[in-house]
Write a protein that binds this DNA or RNA. Structure first.
Lengths: 172, 172
DNA sequence: TTCCTAGTTGCGGATAATTCGCAACTAGAC
DNA sequence: GTCTAGTTGCGAATTATCCGCAACTAGGAA
């Protein structure tokens, strides 16, 4: 019962934060929250959509997307991997690590003896074989900190719940 | 001159491996290799395509993709992030790390005091602010090791240069 | 409770990245 | 030079995600 308790707490937290951001708690959002709060997976929008659809046959996939981006903007969920429009390739065969700018998507390699020596815990071996381990550091790159314009592909990804007149929690 | 030397060596390496795999060295492939060998970035297919197109106006984007997947299958390039069709969401707000199965794309969280304490080198600060650092471990998950079938989306991504009768380096 | 409106929703049609089927080529073995 | 398995470019799918819009609803005001 630990799991569902945990889920309940998580759900409560999501609702609180969303409410405090001045965003309306609609049925569909509530259902999506519930689904999210109870998963231990890393679902994609489609998966959540299908799950929610079982209880609420009329939701639209679009709403699921919108809700997820909103939650991401509030810091309640993260997106895995790079915020990806297209696949990026890496030709660097040397052991290295990545710095990813969460705003513009730029990726820089860096090396570090310390990090190369990092010790993957035994427990991971139960999950599967370990081929490769690397560190991913996220932040806002120097360039984005100076200029205030994402240099690449402004495809509604970073920021923006896509709400021209919507939500706007006026995040200070 | 260090850089281009490095590129030259890299190019040579790619050509050698590809040749030894019994794959034909066509003009377009050679150009793509050259482009890749000399980049210090993490380009996407489109970017490489445009670069190659300058020297060889007739290449097709499709060929670029095919070549890249081929190189990935040979281990000469890696794809960044999860091999991503769709965005995956993570509701886990606790500090954690990821185990990613390179075959089926499954992602598992794991925790580790050791890894939480990892020390991001000073040099990274020059790249930008550090918001978050986590470890990504790649391997083949237990499930994929037992059953021999990718449980999810067989969309030509993992493995397969998309070559029904092609290439087949007969990797032993 | 009822009313009112900013914020939302579902829809159907865009976009963009990536893949496919196929007929016309070409590298490289002989 | 010949021959063929392996490749290429093309144009048409696919798929994830987004956008505009008109019909709705949460939640504060009356």
């Amino acid at each position: 019962m630990r799991k569902s308790e945990h889920g309940a707490r998580r759900l409560e937290h999501i609702e609180t934060v969303v409410r405090e951001a001045g965003i309306k708690l609609t049925h569909q959002r509530l259902e999506i929250f519930r689904e999210l709060a109870h998963t231990e997976e890393h679902p994609d929008a489609e998966t959540i959509f299908r799950a929610v659809q079982r209880r609420m046959p009329t939701v639209s996939l679009d709403t699921v997307y919108r809700t997820l981006w909103m939650l991401r903007d509030l810091g309640l969920v993260t997106t895995l991997g790079l915020h990806g429009d297209s696949v990026r390739f890496d030709v660097n065969l040397h052991r290295h690590h990545h710095y990813v700018c969460v705003r513009c998507g730029a990726i820089h390699d860096f090396e570090s003896m310390d990090l190369n020596g990092l010790h993957v815990p035994e427990s991971v071996k139960e999950l599967g074989s370990v081929v490769h381990a690397q560190v991913e550091v996220r932040g806002i790159c120097a360039r984005c900190q100076s200029v205030d314009a994402p240099p690449k592909k402004p495809r509604a990804k970073p920021g923006a719940t896509r709400a021209p007149r919507a939500a706007s929690p006026r995040r200070t």
